[in-house]
Amino acid sequence: MISELLFFMEVLVAGLLSGTMYSLVALGFVLIYKASSTFNFAQGAMVFFAVLSFVGLMEFGIPFFVAFIITVVLMIGVGLATERLVLRPLMNQSEDTLLMATIGLGFVLEGLAQAVWGVEVRRLDLGIKDSPIPWIADNLQLFISALDVTAGLVATAMIVGLTLLFKYTKIGLGLRSVADDAGAASSIGIPLKHIMLLVWSAAGVVALVAGMMWGARAGVQFALIDLALKALPVLIIGGFSSIPGAIIGGLLIGASEKILEVYIGPYFGGGIEGWAPYVLAIFFLLYRPEGLFGEKIIRRV
C-alpha cells in the first residue's frame, strides 16, 4: 500500500516536472497571442531553429555563453525579419490570415534550420545531470534529476520575470493596450511596430531557452517541433493570453497525462498520453472555453 502510494507520488511529481517543460514552450505562444491575438504555429519551429543554431554554433568551437548571446541576437533578427516581411505587410488583416502566415513561417524556419545546420540529431550537454539526485532517491524514493529541477526553476523564473514585465513596466502597459485594441493603441502613439518586434524577439528567446531544456533531455532534433502540439492543450486549459495560465496548464497537462498513461493506459493498449491531453482540452472548450485564466470574451449581439 505504502509502495503504491509512493509510486503514485513519483508519477505525479514526474508529471508536474514534465509540465514545467511544456509550460516553457507554451510561454512563447502566450507572448505572441497577447500582442496579436494570433496562435503562432511557428513557435515549435522557432524552438527547433533556435536550439539547432545554438548547438551548431558551439560545434564551430564557439564557447557556450558566446553561442548563447549570438543565438539570442539571431532570434531577435528572426523577430525583426518576421515583423518586417510577414507582419507589417499583413497589418490590419484578419486573424485567420495571420494564423496562416505563422504556419508558413514555421515551414520556412524548419527548412532553413535543416538546410543550414543539417539533419543529424545533436547532443546538447548543459553540464546538468539528467540522472537521479542521490539524496532525493535515497531518502524520498523519488527519481528526480537535476535537469528536472533546473527546468522547473527556469520556467518559474521566466514566468515571474514576464509577469513583472507585463504588469509593472511601460512596455508591458503598451503591450496590453495593443492586445486590447491595436487601432486605439496606435492612435494614442503606442509604437505598434516596436511592440511587435519586442514580442517576437522575446518569443524567440523563450523558444531558445525551452529548446535548450528539451534538447538537453532528448537531443536537438526535428521532433522538437512537435512540442508545439503539446502546448496547444496547455494553452486551452490555462488560457491563451495568461502567463500564469501557461504554467498551471502545463502542470495540469503534465500530471494528468502521466497519471492517465500509467493507470488507464494499459486498458487502451498504452500510448494514450499522445491524445489524452486533448480529451481534457475538449472538456475545457465545452465548459470553460476561455481556459482557467483567460479573459472572458463578452460581445454585444
Binding site: F7, G15, K258, G270
Partner: peptide, 21 residues
Amino acid sequence: IEIAIAPPGLEQQSQWLQIRR
C-alpha cells in the same frame, strides 16, 4: 509486458516509471 510510447516519444517518463515498478 507490452508498453507503448506515443510518437514522437520525447516524453517517456510514465513508461519508464512503469518499467521501474
